[in-house]
Write a protein that binds this DNA or RNA. Sequence first.
DNA 1: CACTACACATGCACG
DNA 2: ATGTGTAGTG
Length: 667
Amino acid sequence: MDIDFKNSLNDRQYEAVRMYNGPVLILAGAGSGKTRVIIYRIAYLLQQGIPQKSILAVTFTNKAAREMSTRVRDLVGRNLRNLTISTFHAFGSKILRECIHILGYRLNFSIYDQQDKVTLLKDLAREAGFKNDSLDLYAVSNIFSGIKMGRLRWTSFTDQYKDLYSEYNSHLKLYNAVDFDDLITLPIELLKGYPDILKKYRDRYSYFMVDEFQDTSLIQYEFIKLIAYHTKNLCVVGDDDQSIYSWRGANYGNILTFEQDFPGYKEIKLEQNYRSTGKILLAANHLIAHNKNRKEKKLWTGTEDGEFLQFSIHDNEKCEGEFIAEQIKSLKMKNRYSYSQFGVLVRTNSLTRSIEEAFVYANIPYKVSGGMSFFQRKEVKDIISYLRIIANPDDDMNLLRIINVPRRGIGKKSIQYITQVAINKSCSLYSAIMAICHASDADINKKANTELSDFAGMIEYYRQKFFSRNKMADTLKSLVEHIDYWGHLVQEHKKGNTARWKYMNVEGLINSLADYENDPDNPEPGLYSYLNRITILTNDDNQNTQDEDKVNLMTIHSAKGLEFDAVFTAGVEETIIPHTRSIEEDASNIEEERRLFYVAITRAKKYLFLTACRQRRKKGKVIDVQISPFIDEIPDDLIEVYEEEDTFTQEDAENYFQKMRRGFERE
DNA sequence: CACTACACATGCACG
DNA sequence: ATGTGTAGTG
């Protein structure tokens, strides 16, 4: 390994890389080469002779983790199988795979994602007598998460869900399942309650880094502190101005807590921006300066001032989309940009619709990131449920999902009966099925009994195959054929290519399993670890890489950490950014909305377009909207405003006078 | 008793 | 596009 650290980094970065003993806080402004510092820092640790297995780096997404591994590997020029770079959740599940049995779970535990959680809650709520439509399970699930993670307390309002909460948790345990929050709380329970386990992990790791520290929650910080506190070789990297995940517990106050927990820590500010032009950076600085709660920093850049920011106002979202499409085309011509150098950012997923339509019309290739991820799709989840039952037969929820998919004549009555048997024997549904099949006195009709036997026999057959042969993907393929999932899809989707498309996704799952078991770098290619793995993948993880030349269309949240030569931020309107629901919830959320806008702006390298509409269609209704107050926080001399002239279509004509009036008001 | 077909409402801000 | 509720059928 022969790396010229000094000349690959600026002075501050170099300092951050070399300061590897003791607590370090790196405040890394947008575009200041944060990832570069982390990668070089790991390489530096290795160069100092620190064994790779002693290094633990935590990132926010699996994608970031993977990218970081690759870049470190490329830099040091060798494979690093024992270097741990993972997300909090992946690290938590790693610990659980090693010692969850101590807490009374079995090692083949299932992980429930958000969707699974809501499904389970739905069943339990029904049993508990809640009327189906009387409660917002999504909201309840968030409350439960807040309670479990210690950021909410029971209130007079939420007390009504206390029983449901304990039902939920005891059912998880009964099913030998954990939810996403448990991936953090259970490891903490293990580390706190069992000194030998704590010792094991403390002995193993001695150098720690946390990326995106402003996005860690209190409990995640506690988690890492438990393992890292004794060596104090903890380096956290973050930017309070880019904290945009408070709604899921992120707490940039952790930066202050860190300062208190590790007195004598070293602080390094990375303030040189390598990404944006002077004007873009200046605009960002002015905007974010309106926030009261922040650590003071001043980003600067040595590069040119660049172009003016463009703010344009359009009649409606259709015009806005067309404008963006036109600008992309002309900018592409002018600068010989490829499509992938453009990013179009929006506050909410629903805003992508009109822009997509404009792109389709203008023949602009694009990709949308976010939305439903591959592993969340119904057809993929169905097959995963089969795998789950094979891995963990106690998982009643997944059993219920697939027991009659495809239809095999096991309906409501049969399921009621099985449930009753399970309750009487206090065993899982699957065990109940086995018992019914073997019992001569089962009170169930012959046809249903045969169906149940066939089902159980099939599961047993494939379980045996999965654990006796190495070719899991082949086994899965024959399972999919055995249950005739294709026939099921054709029946459910008679028109169009839907069935074909969905079956391709199922084949995609089989391929992913094949890739997993054939990966020579995979230290534990088993079914359990595969299932754990795919469940904790986040949306960003199956995004296609940038080898496709397409315009990137995404939410601001998912644009975090990315950069584009030209950025369009659409829907820069009051009610969108800042978002009404965010402000309604708590007026102080305005600062987080401003940070969100700041993140959007700082994604741009050369060109930044902000667009807004006068009217926007929302849930079928056309409503008038105002431009975002954040626009006024950007100095006038950095921004060019362009008001698209009213086009006199029929729709516009109706509102002509209204618009005139608004036009004057603006003057 | 399970299945089918059809009507229906709902589209969770951000992962 | 997806889930849910209902009525009618074999």
